[in-house]
Design a protein around this nucleic acid. Structure first.
Lengths: 212, 212
DNA sequence: AATGAATTTAAACATACGTTTGAAATGTAC
DNA sequence: GTACATTTCAAACGTATGTTTAAATTCATT
C-alpha cells in the first residue's frame, strides 16, 4: 500500500480538476503532474496512457452514478401509470448530488467533465456511453416515451439530444455562466440551483407540441 | 489580382471545412494547406497566424449574417404589440438559410463552426461575440423579454443560455445526429429540417413557467 | 525586355507534447 | 539485514505543431 495510492489519487484529482476547467486535449500531462506534485512519468506508470487516465477519471464517477440511476429508473418503470415528465427528469437530481461522496465538489466537477467529454474528443464519449451504459439509458428513453405518448419516437430522439446539448453546454461553461449571473443579476447560483432551473425548461421543451 | 485571391480563397474554404468537421485546435495548418493544395507558409503570409485565420473564417459568415439579423430585429421591434416568442425565434431561419450565398453548404457549415467556436476554444468566441455584436444581440434579448413579460430577466438569461447550448451542441454534432436519425428512423434530415424542429422545442422551454 | 514588388516555395526553427528508459530510491518479506 | 519487488525520478526520445527565413518564382508596370 504505502503512498502508491496517494500518488495515484493525487494524479486523479489534479487531472479531473484541470480536465473540467480547460478540457481533455487542452490539458497536458505536465500540467497535471505539476499540480499534483508528482513526477511526469508516474502517469504512464500508474495509468498507462493519457487516454486511460481520462477513462479512469470518468469511471470514478460513472461507477457510482450509473448503478444509482439504474435503480431509480427501475423504480419508475415499476409504476402502474406513466410518470409525469418532470418526475422522470427529476430522477437525476439526487444521484447527481450524491456525487459529493466521491469528492466535495463532485457533482459540479462530473457535470463539467461530461460536457468536456462530449464537446472535446467528439464522438468518442458517445460511443463509450452507449457501449457501456446503453441498456441503462434505454430505460430512461422508455420512461420519457411513456410520459409523452403523443410524441413519435423520432421526435423524442431529437428532443433528448437537444436536451443533452443544453446540459452539456451549460455544464461545460458552468463557471463562466455563474460569473455572468453574479455580475449582471447579483445572483449566487450553486450547482443544484442550476440543475433545478433546468428541469422545467427541459420538461417544457421535450413535451412541446410538434411543429405543423 | 492574379491567383492571389485564389490561394487565399482555397485556404479559407479548406480551413472552414476542416474546422467545421473536427474543430479548430484539432485541425493543423498542414492539414489545411494539404487539402487546399497550397504551401504551408502561405497561411501565415496571407492571414498572419492560425488565430487570425480562424477569425477570418468566422468573419466571412458573420459579416453577412449579423447585419441581416439586425435588420430583422429592428423590424420586429417596430411592432406595436409584443411579438409571439415563436415569431422572434423564427427570425433566425431566413438569414441563416441565406448563408448559401457565401457558399453552397454555407448554412450548415457556419452553424457547425459556431458550435465548434463555443466548445473548442472556450470563452474566446463568447468574448468576441459580445464585443463585436453585443448591441445587435441585446435587441434579441429585448424581443424575448417583451414576448415573455411574466419571466424575470435573470430567468430569461439562463434560458437563453440553455437554448444556446442546444443550438451549439446540435450543430457541432450535426453530422453524427443525422447519421443516427437515418439509421434508427429512416429519416433524411437536412439542415433546415433541424432548424425547424428546434423552434417549437426552444420556444416551449424558454416560455415555460418557472419552478416553484 | 527590364525592373521591382508580390507571392510561392522548401527548409529549418523553436517549442510542446505523450511516451520510454534505466538508474536511484523506497518499501516489503524473509 | 539481506534480497526482491514496487515505485519514483531525471533525462531523453520521437513526433507534431505554429512560425520564420531566405531564396526562387511569378506578376504587374514601365
Amino acid at each position: 500500500m504505502s503512498n502508491k495510492q496517494s500518488t495515484q489519487l493525487k494524479i486523479l484529482e489534479a487531472a479531473e480538476q484541470l480536465f473540467a476547467d480547460t478540457g481533455f486535449s487542452a490539458t497536458s500531462l505536465r500540467q497535471i503532474t505539476s499540480l499534483a506534485e508528482v513526477n511526469l512519468a508516474s502517469v504512464n506508470y500508474h495509468f498507462g496512457s493519457k487516454k486511460e487516465l481520462i477513462q479512469a477519471v470518468l469511471q470514478r464517477y460513472l461507477a457510482v452514478l450509473m448503478p444509482r440511476l439504474d435503480q431509480e429508473f427501475n423504480r419508475l418503470l415499476a409504476a402502474q401509470q406513466p410518470n409525469q415528465l418532470t418526475t422522470v427528469l427529476s430522477v437525476f437530481v439526487e444521484p447527481l448530488l450524491e456525487l459529493r461522496a466521491v469528492q466535495p465538489q463532485g457533482t459540479s466537477t462530473f457535470l463539467q467533465l461530461l460536457g468536456r467529454g462530449y464537446t472535446d474528443v467528439q464522438g468518442h464519449l458517445r460511443w463509450f456511453f452507449n457501449h457501456h451504459y446503453g441498456r441503462i439509458l434505454d430505460k430512461f428513453v422508455l420512461l420519457v416515451q411513456q410520459s409523452c405518448p403523443a410524441l413519435p419516437p423520432s421526435e423524442i430522439f431529437w428532443r433528448l439530444h437537444f436536451s443533452l446539448g443544453t446540459i452539456v453546454f451549460t455544464m461545460a461553461s458552468n463557471v463562466a455562466l455563474k460569473d455572468i449571473a453574479a455580475a449582471d443579476f447579483n445572483e449566487t447560483v450553486e450547482i443544484d440551483g442550476v440543475i433545478k432551473r433546468l428541469i422545467p425548461y427541459l420538461a417544457a421543451g421535450i413535451a412541446a407540441p410538434p411543429a405543423a
